[in-house]
Simulated assay, not measured.
Amino acid sequence: MLVNAIKEYQLRVDDQLKQRFSTLEDTAPQLKAAMTHGALLGGKRIRPFLVYSVGQMFGVPLEKLDACAAAIECIHAYSLIHDDLPAMDDDALRRGQPTVHIAFDEATAILAGDALQTLAFEIVTEAVPGITSEQHIAMVRALAKASGYRGMCGGQAIDLASTDKHIDLKALTQLHNMKTGALISCAVELALIAANAPKDQYQTMMEFAHAVGLAFQVQDDILDIIATTEELGKPQGSDAESNKSTFPQLLGLQGAKDTATQLIQEALSALAKLPYNSQLIADFARYIIERRI
Rank of each mutant, 00 (worst) to 15 (best):
182 A>D: 01
142 A>L: 08
116 L>F: 05
28 A>Y: 15
85 L>V: 10
7 K>W: 02
16 Q>L: 14
191 A>V: 05
268 L>Q: 06
124 V>A: 11
37 H>T: 00
256 A>D: 02
32 K>V: 00
184 I>R: 00
93 L>M: 14
235 P>H: 06
195 A>N: 09
126 E>Q: 15
157 A>W: 08
282 A>I: 04
197 A>Q: 10
246 T>L: 06
123 I>F: 14
189 E>W: 01
12 R>D: 06
246 T>H: 05
251 L>G: 04
19 Q>Y: 11
127 A>D: 14
196 N>H: 05
107 A>W: 12
103 A>Q: 12
218 V>G: 00
56 Q>M: 13
136 H>Q: 15
153 C>I: 14
106 E>N: 09
14 D>S: 09
196 N>S: 11
289 I>T: 13
178 M>N: 07
214 L>W: 03
54 V>M: 01
120 A>V: 14
10 Q>P: 03
126 E>V: 08
198 P>W: 07
264 I>Q: 02
36 T>Y: 00
114 D>N: 10
115 A>F: 02
72 I>D: 03
247 F>W: 04
189 E>M: 05
18 K>W: 07
44 K>H: 04
191 A>T: 06
23 T>W: 13
144 A>K: 05
204 T>G: 05
240 A>S: 14
246 T>P: 00
281 I>D: 03
189 E>N: 05
51 V>A: 03
239 D>I: 04
214 L>C: 01
